[in-house]
């Protein structure tokens, strides 16, 4: 699910950047460091705007300035039960690896409808029901997240396509 979240970040700036473009530089730094980051809990999709940049404070002994920035960002936190669209990255006899944006989702064979079978003899290998449904590398899938587990800088998720309206798009 997507959220608009207000967050704060502390940025230390080297004195060589002090000048008329400080603000611009801070915005660039923030975008570079935050956008696309995975906190382990959620993904930061996009920094919307700065709420408050605040006064820079020079740190004793170093001469560097510390800015506390308040900003709003669009974040995505995957939840159990959420339905997402994903792209297949590889298919294996044990299941399907997909990417839903930044999130890697694995679909185990048990969570694939029983009529869609593993077919290793084609190039590239695929899951197929020998009709119109073919799942191979690059296919778009709609899947439901069964479980999410945060890691240090990544999130792993388990998905299923064994429900109505799920599967290849």
């Amino acid at each position: 699910m997507f959220f608009l979240k207000e967050e704060t970040k502390v940025i230390t700036l080297h004195p060589s950047y002090f000048g008329p473009n400080v603000r611009e530089y801070l915005i660039n730094r923030l975008n570079e460091e935050e956008e696309g980051r995975c906190t382990g809990d959620h993904f930061v999709i996009c920094v919307m705007d700065m709420v408050d940049i605040g006064e820079g404070r020079v740190l004793p002994s170093g001469g560097q300035a510390e800015y506390t920035i308040k900003y709003r960002a669009i974040i995505w936190k995957p939840f159990r039960g959420e339905t997402v669209d994903a792209i297949v990255t590889s298919v294996k006899p044990t299941g399907i690896f997909t990417l839903a944006g930044p999130l890697s989702v694995f679909i185990a064979r048990k969570n694939i409808p029983s009529d869609i079978r593993w077919e290793p003899n084609t190039v590239p290998p695929q899951y197929t029901d020998h009709a119109d449904q073919v799942i191979e590398k690059g296919t778009s899938l709609r899947l439901k997240i069964l479980g999410v587990k945060p890691d240090v800088a990544a999130i792993n998720a388990i998905g299923t396509i064994k429900e109505d309206y799920l599967g290849p798009l």
Binding site: G95, F106, D151, A157, I158
Partner: peptide, 16 residues
């Protein structure tokens, strides 16, 4: 029987 990143790939439970 199949686990993905610390999750059971079949039921979605946390294995750790």
């Amino acid at each position: 029987e199949v686990q993905f990143g610390g999750l059971c790939a079949e039921c979605g439970k946390d294995m750790t």
